[in-house]
Design a protein around this nucleic acid. Structure first.
Lengths: 402, 402
DNA sequence: CTACTTAAGCAACGCTGTTGCCAAAGTGCA
DNA sequence: TGCACTTTGGCAACAGCGTTGCTTAAGTAG
């Protein structure tokens, strides 16, 4: 059961178990999973699993799909998630670009869109543009099927909006607006309050300080909205790609340096959504001044090495911070991402892996901590943002919880 | 509900709610708490709370204790935890000393005992001595009331054992062996496997590598045993002292430097019980060599400053590490402890607080992070060890979970 | 074709928190 | 003093959860 301070009743129990089964179905993917295996993995009785899966099938969330080979008796029936039973929109607002994806329950991208963005423009304009793009991805100018649709900005009644240069829109199923859109997950750079969906002073963009992004987008799109830091969204999305429930860290090196932490299957945000301040960890006491006012921050050292063209040194600094993090939290897996890393992935993976490996070796116990680059999709943040909406369905605290 | 990968049934539901209520009773302490307040805090209906508290009263865990002032109607009945309904033993094995405490459900120390210890002696001898001391604290040579009692070492049938110099034993209620001892929590220094209760290579004491401490002590005492790192035990115990469920870090500076983390009400251990490796966080790239083989570790810098008599510099280094930790995890509260800090608490609190305060100010948002010394008892580790046993009763994952 | 094994559903059951109702125990005002 | 009102908390009936006992379905092995 999910950690909480509130009591549980029968509906809570029911949805907990349903989420558990749904999560196993999601992880099983197209291979599917049998009722008895679900029973083993959940420690529920087979009969309980039968009842739960019957409900899920009645709701259209699961379906039977073939049989396993017999082991001497009646063959097991394979159950699978029905990906089309629900969708979520992920929106990534970056400093100079906007990315929107529409994903199904399985996390597959159904449609996506990318457009340039001036994050420094007035908040209202950015919100209007974002809502417009969300509407387009959803298959029409009107946005989601429900009420309160997007009051799209000036003009643009056409279904496909040629919105600036480089705007790309490739819907996999263009004329097929999904019936059930569960919500909109939004990932933004700066510090913010996740619970209230209110931004704080994003570095370099003071006009966002105190802006209620969640409520503004909810009013524009008519969808439930969840807002989180870009690194948290990416970490959540990437953590769902792996089978294991192990603790997970995503390190993002782009124009800045940040981290997203997934501990115990849930994004760790801290009380003020401040967790993941990785870039301003001090790794060189009395070192060079950082833009934050401190000295010897990882970010300052890293970016200095990058601008000096010394990727190996940048990787060494980054690796030192990563090793600190792995040691402090006993993290199971680390994933690297971000534009700077993407430009020279081998150097960074090799450099960071070397430092972590040395640390693990010193500490003796503990198998090697896997370190990889982001995989499967060049929009990890936007896809993760969509998972902010979907994760609660699978019992993973991501949007509503904490 | 507590985060888990297993399904939940009605007994699970029941114990979850009971634990929740019990935890609120524990936090309320002697002031007590009314049924309606319990209902508000748990989000359960008043009727459900009535049923749950009736069960707890029938089991002897709770009792009615007076009434609140009326607010215009029938006055609320105050409920309180019955501390004597259960006890737990906490054992702290330090490098040169052994501490045993017997605590009640409320966490109050009922009896305690301290004795010198040579942690470098053969494992069997240490275990025998520890089991003997546990038996003494429990009020007799035979140990716990249940079967499989301590096969106490050579001699010593007397109830109070004058066991070496400086051995102190002051039971509050000498002739009153508690009926229900729920288990034994053990806190030890080195790296270890919490799930299996097996030690790894404790620095300087290679003979403990691979020793199954949990099973050995369970066999000796006949009690359920939970083993954890000393810093984790202390962090758990100290975190329970505060009302808030906020995230918590305990920093221990003694012969070494370590940390215990309590995130979301549960001790964060990581997959291999390795979390909390605070001492070997790098804060000075290419700095002086540390005993661990790395360079620029907090511990190396800190201990160097301490041995040089420069408490201010040690506090500054420690504070840098603490600020890193606070920033990375958005920790709510930090507590300092350990012999070195105890020797000059003001200097360390002032120094560490200054560094954290500066960092928080730079980051803008976020209220000041409270930093205090350990309070209430000079045996925080042993008391925390006892809480390893009690915490699961209150729905706080500490012993069984994770 | 018979015997056996395994998977999965039906029906009855115990137990959970919830709902509707009522008694108990105070305060406040006439 | 007595009546009206407010608030607390238990009793009884209830819907819904997973569990248990048993039956049916659907394969393999000889």
């Amino acid at each position: 059961m999910n950690r909480s301070n509130t009591g549980a009743n029968l509906p809570t129990l029911r949805s907990h178990n349903a989420a558990l089964v749904l999560d196993l179905l999601r992880v099983a993917g197209e291979r599917g999973i049998s009722r008895l295996e679900l029973a083993e993995r959940t420690a529920l009785t087979p009969q309980a699993v039968s009842k739960i899966t019957a409900r899920l099938r009645a709701e259209g969330l699961a379906t039977e799909a073939g049989h396993r080979a017999s082991t001497g008796g009646k063959p097991r029936t394979v159950l699978r998630l029905v990906p089309d039973a629900g969708h979520a929109v992920g929106l990534h607002l970056d400093r100079d670009e906007l990315t929107v994806v529409l994903v199904d329950l399985a996390g597959a991208v159904v449609a996506s869109r990318r457009a340039p963005l001036d994050f420094g423009a007035p908040a209202g304009e950015v919100v209007a543009a974002a809502a417009r793009e969300v509407g387009v991805v959803l298959g029409g100018p009107g946005g989601a099927g429900s009420g309160g649709a997007a009051e799209a900005g000036p003009g643009n009644p056409a279904p496909t909006v040629p919105d600036g240069t480089g705007s790309v829109s490739h819907a996999v199923s263009p004329g097929d607006p999904p019936a059930t859109v569960l919500g909109l997950g939004v990932a933004v750079p700066g510090p913010l309050d996740h619970r209230g969906g209110v931004l704080h002073r994003v570095t370099g963009f003071p006009q966002w300080d105190g802006f209620p992004l969640r409520d503004a987008l909810a009013a524009r799109t008519g969808l439930p909205v969840v807002v989180d830091k870009d690194t948290n969204a990416a970490a959540l999305g990437l953590s769902l790609r792996a089978d294991g429930p192990g603790d997970f860290a995503y390190l993002h090196l782009g124009t800045g340096l940040g981290a997203g932490l997934v501990l115990g299957g849930a994004v760790h945000r801290g009380a003020r959504t401040g967790a993941g301040e990785f870039g301003h960890q001090t790794v060189l006491l009395d070192g060079p001044l950082c833009s934050c006012g401190g000295r010897g921050c990882i970010e300052a050292l890293c970016l200095a090495a990058v601008s000096g063209g010394d990727a190996a040194e940048a990787a060494r600094v980054l690796g030192t911070g990563a090793a600190n993090l792995v040691g402090l939290l006993d993290i199971d897996r680390v994933v690297l991402g971000g534009r700077t890393v993407d430009a020279d992935p081998d150097a960074y993976v090799r450099g960071v892996r070397a430092v972590i490996g040395e640390r693990v070796r010193r500490d003796g116990i503990g198998a090697a901590v896997p370190l990889v680059m982001t995989v499967g999709g060049d929009r990890p943040v936007a896809e993760g943002a969509a998972q902010l909406v979907l994760a609660p369905l699978f019992g993973r605290l991501g949007g509503a919880g904490a």
